[in-house]
């Protein structure tokens, strides 16, 4: 997993609430047995019409958001299924940071495991970013170490993140490798319960 310390990137707004994982990656694309290549299917039913042509209304298709790496959305982002294909698609499309007022628990967890920073901001902060991102080339700088989001127009805010996911993201750790160093504890637990 790639460490994430400071990230600067173009912002793409998605002004919708309760964006569920069936929208993030529709079920017909869950059949691949690889982790890669899901970006092309991100928000598929919203990005493309029935004939597979890009929907010009959808923000991700707008030329001004091409290359965006920070996705900003409404509350309860990622609700629904546990499919990790959802964060895989978000990441493979090029997003490294998501900013929303709230997330579904499983989705948020899955983001950390893949090195995606899912920032919880207030509804006002999210609305401010969505409005600012209407102008071309709007970008944000995210400093995970200091837990600060800022733009170059003087707008900034701090965000909360628990110590463990922060450490995981900053170091890009392989969690299983870390856990296996607790092997004696796991064995001890199993013996005590046997």
């Amino acid at each position: 997993m790639e460490p994430l310390r400071i990230h600067q990137g173009l912002v793409c707004p998605l002004d919708r609430t309760n964006v569920d994982t069936d929208q993030i990656i529709p079920k017909q694309f869950l059949k691949r047995i690889e982790r890669s290549g899901f970006g092309q299917f991100l928000f598929y039913n919203w990005r493309f019409d029935d004939d597979g042509n890009p929907n010009p209304e959808f923000p991700l298709n707008a030329p001004q958001y091409k290359g965006a790496s920070i996705l900003v959305a409404g509350e309860n982002f990622g609700c629904g299924s546990s499919r990790e294909h959802a964060p895989w698609a978000v990441q493979d499309f090029g997003f490294k940071v998501i900013i929303a007022p709230s997330y579904a628990d499983i989705f948020k967890n899955n983001c950390v495991k893949n090195g995606i920073l899912a920032i919880q901001a207030s509804e006002e902060q999210v609305q401010t970013i969505i409005e600012k991102a209407q102008s071309e080339g709007y970008s944000l700088t995210v400093n995970l170490e200091d837990q600060v989001v800022s733009d170059n127009e003087g707008f900034s805010f701090t965000f909360d993140i628990a110590p463990y996911p922060k450490e995981m993201l900053l170091n890009g750790w392989d969690e299983i490798g870390v856990t296996l160093t607790y092997e004696d504890k796991i064995k001890e637990y199993e013996l005590a319960r046997a």
């Binding site: 299924s81 546990s82 990790e84 499983i106 967890n109 899955n110 495991k113 969690e175 299983i176 856990t179």
Partner: peptide
């Protein structure tokens, strides 16, 4: 429910 990284874990 868990994601695939947690399944592996």
């Amino acid at each position: 429910g868990i994601g695939t990284s947690e399944v592996e874990h």
